[in-house]
Amino acid sequence: MTSTFKQLLKVELAKALKNKFFITTLIIALLFALFSAWYMIDLYFYSLRGLSRMGGNQMIQALSLFNHWIGGEATSLGFTLFFTLMPLIAALPYGWSYFIENKSGYVKTVVTRSAKTEYFLAKYIATFISGGLVILIPLLINFIVVACFIPAVTPSTMYTMYHSVYHGSLWSQSYYTNPVWFVILYLILDFIFAGLFATMSLTVSLFVKNRIAVILVPFFLILVLHYSRTFLAYKYYYEISPLNYLHSTPIINPANVWIIIGQGLLFFILTFGLTMRLGGKRELL
């Protein structure tokens, strides 16, 4: 790592995390996450009142923080908006940056002072981190807010109907023994995939000359991937859509670790490989 690269990375990270698009998108994502928190806390107290009226078994392990935070519930509108629009939210803060810098001529001033590969590597890392953070921060805040109201009771396999984490579900053992670790694992997974969604925009910006397409093409590609599940109905029972498996409790099919690793690697090879290869060869001056 040269000193130019360190400097470049510092500049790119500052630009990625201190621009108005990052702040605006973060506020929107936070609104979705807080909307989910508000709805689920209300639902929790409503359920609690109903149970106490009925008496008998209070089903303490059925209602817990782990199936009321945004990653564990699949009921609220906040969850729907957050997870469906995740590829769009991740790309908005900084996915467009290369396109704008190339158009304005800023790239030329950078590549005369450093290597092109260093510029694209710094750009890739900054885009990845901005996309990851804009998803990770609302998830964390939602978890903390919900934890302020709903106790973190360790889920029990007696209540799988309420928890939707079945035998064979990804990291199901952790869910019923050490759920905080389970949540941390999912937060890391969501951070990585959100970063990859953001870098898809960076890669697309090497091919298209339209800022709107730079942001929306990756979003539509993920939606098409999500739709393609329909052709596997009644044939294959593992989740292939990131929009579903990035949610910690299964929405339709259980997640499979090999599919997640495979898709993650594919996204990484395509985005990183194409960005570095095409970017490094690109005539920028």
Partner: peptide, 10 residues
């Protein structure tokens, strides 16, 4: 809490 919302993808 026992029924997930599945958005209409098509």
């Amino acid at each position: 809490i026992t029924e997930e919302f599945i958005f209409p993808i098509k």
